[in-house]
Design a protein around this nucleic acid. Structure first.
Lengths: 197, 197, 197, 197
DNA sequence: TATGAATGAGAGTTCATTCAT
DNA sequence: CATGAATGAACTCTCATTCAT
């Protein structure tokens, strides 16, 4: 199972993932060619098709992989924490994630609110899983009285996710020199104020 | 004589704009073909090229047109208002705009934070003009003492623009049944709270 | 017949001829667009079609006009002259013509030995008329004993025409600083030597 | 392993060369489509672009290949010969070449004296290399006293090249039934007579 | 007599995908 | 497990031609 061949193959897949995410973040899915991906990964074009059924499938697995990671970090962040602290931990986790996987975050920002794309179903589903963690935390806050009782949990969670994404990416693209702590503080400050209502 | 011709041509360009913005918002620039655009506009393919140098130029003029409109509405909104009220007016104007030109807003959200695209220069420039109106208002608020003196005006304006965009589009895509007033209230509430700091 | 309208139209046709001959000489027939021709002639594209049935017809009339002129000058040159002097006069006439209508000469050089072109029939016919004047002169020289009796009149005339064309155009393109008299002398010298055989 | 592939690819390129030269000679560069070339070579259209950057590049490599061959034959022809004999050898070599690669010769005749074409730089350069061999021979003849001391070497070489081309192609197009030896004799006769001056 | 907006067939080019090696 | 030559459908763009003004 984890013999030489499997490891080699896993390595190739990993390099293709990295190459694809960078290029698609920069140029978008359609503008990124399989040739580009293979070249940046340092393999032949045929190798892409040996490892993935198609360009679309490669992209879908990429989304699955990336958002799965984010969801896992969300779950780890809130584990055992009381609602308000958990909310802060989520913001921190999202920022950390975006900083580490900047290209993937850009890609998400570009694709998340599109319509009529092949992988839309997949994306909505994955988005739902990530936001569910946020929603659970928000719901817990409402139940415990830490958050206003009339809060629309679904919309608030959705907005929280989107705001974190856009603010962090905006920071990375337009003010990369600004320290992340400031950004984190601003976001946490806003969340706390909203919570207090 | 020349007037009839000019009017006809202007009409054709307008229809191409409308067709292009819808399709590109849904599918992205690369995935949208010139054939699609021509078909939706109800003209022949050659007509697209008679009116625009290239697909890229059509898109750039589209960006210019759309963001120009937004900037104009921003300017009209803040005209003569004191800082805090002006800030509220900006939020309202942005939401109104996004509701009216939903497709264009989606398109902006998808392209604004990308790198390495042909029209990036154009986009950055236009974004700068729109954000300048916000920045002027924020700066006035800082000067008047309505906003915290240590506020990073540039970053705050940038974030305000991004948050408005992502929240409004998220609402249109994922909770279209929710009345816009609520969204507006939420956003205004957040802005006011931040202002009070 | 020669009223205002006709004169204006004739003027437009003339300008289109001049524009077309220049452009086609430089770039070839296919690479020259009707837009190019109209622009250089300073008229609208529709005007080309108002004056000529099609691009091909414009070109054919151009060939007819240009080679007709050359043939006429050939006829005028040899008129009344004894064979050997007539031969020299032909060389001079051809060089004069090429110098005056350089672009047309280039165009001829490019198209004359092509096969499978639409206007080939026309071109062969016109070429035949021009070469007939040369052939008549050569034949007269053979008959009078000034030229060798076993000379293949047809081939010799054909070659004379081609050599004149290629040497003159080569001179115009690659050694334009060299005076025409030298070129003429060289050519006449060769012809005279061949004649003496 | 790699050898099999390389050979296959080289084979494809060769077939594309042959197909392209025939078609372009007949119809000209612009009038020849990539579809035509692919069809005659018996490959798919995409294969043309897998092997050549563009239609223009294919044509440039074609020119390079064809004129390179001619230059090589010129060099082989004059090798070790005294000036006058070398001159005769050049004429023979040129005629042989044109007879063998008739299509390429027609193409050269059509393109050589054009201006404003993309590959002009390339063509001038290659023409220079071929004519340099002639010029060296002519210069040797001048130095040895076999040719007139006041001969303009550059112009004479240029003209010799052009005359050989136009006479040979004229013969192939308009009198293909005439044996090549006669043509060769005529040309050699002229050259010898000029030499005697 | 002249115009120029519009057209659509067809050109050059790209690229996801296949497959023999 | 990996390769890269070949493919052909689909793309962007061009341009000779038409026609209402």
């Amino acid at each position: 199972m984890t013999d030489g061949r499997t490891r080699r193959r896993e390595d190739t897949r990993q390099r293709l993932f990295v190459a694809a995410v960078d290029l698609i973040a920069e140029q978008g899915f359609s503008a990124t060619t399989v040739d580009d991906i293979a070249a940046r990964a340092g393999v032949a074009k045929g190798t892409v098709y040996y490892n993935f059924e198609s360009k679309t499938v490669l992209f879908e697995e990429l989304l699955r992989h990336g958002i799965g990671l984010l969801t896992a970090e969300f779950r780890a962040a809130v584990d055992g924490l009381p609602p308000l602290e958990a909310l802060g931990a989520l913001v921190r986790a999202q920022l950390e994630y975006i900083r580490r996987y900047r290209a993937f975050a850009q890609l998400l920002l570009s694709e998340m609110w599109r319509t009529n794309r092949e992988w839309q179903q997949t994306l909505r589903l994955l988005r739902g899983e990530a936001i569910a963690v946020i929603a659970d935390t928000v719901q817990a806050g409402v139940d415990s009285g830490d958050l206003p009782a009339d809060l629309d949990v679904r919309t608030a969670s959705s907005a929280l996710f989107g705001v974190g994404l856009v603010v962090a990416v905006d920071w990375l693209v337009f003010s990369p020199e600004r320290p992340i702590d400031e950004v984190q503080e601003s976001l946490l400050g806003i969340v706390r104020r909203v919570a207090r209502t």
